[in-house]
Amino acid sequence: MLLITCPFCGPRDESEFACGGEAHIVRPADPAALTDAQWADYLFMRKNVKGVHFERWMHSHGCRRWFNAARDTVTHQFLAFYKMGEQAPDIAPVSYTARPAPRTDPALPADPALHTDREGAR
């Protein structure tokens, strides 16, 4: 069971809340101007981060207000709670991808992005 801190009511059991998925999605100002692909992106495509995820929660069996949270999707640990309309806090991303083996193909330069030191859980 998660312990969730509603910014208005304080820490409560998970069973009082509903999760609303990815936060900070902005409704397009002029939907009619979008292509089908852009509209589909807005409607259906979502971040599915393995690591720090910014998401919306609603205190549905409490004050019934929406708020935002940052949560690690592997450990389930909450890293921040903040109100709607506030900026997402600056939280360093975590990578859970394993360290790749050294390149066996010398023809190509090493890709530094693949060699993260933050492998595995923190």
């Binding site: 998660l2 999760c19 393995k50 999707t73 389930h76």
Partner: peptide, 13 residues
Amino acid sequence: DLFQSYGQRGSLP
């Protein structure tokens, strides 16, 4: 469970 997760475990409720 209604939240996104890669944790291979869910909540008791």
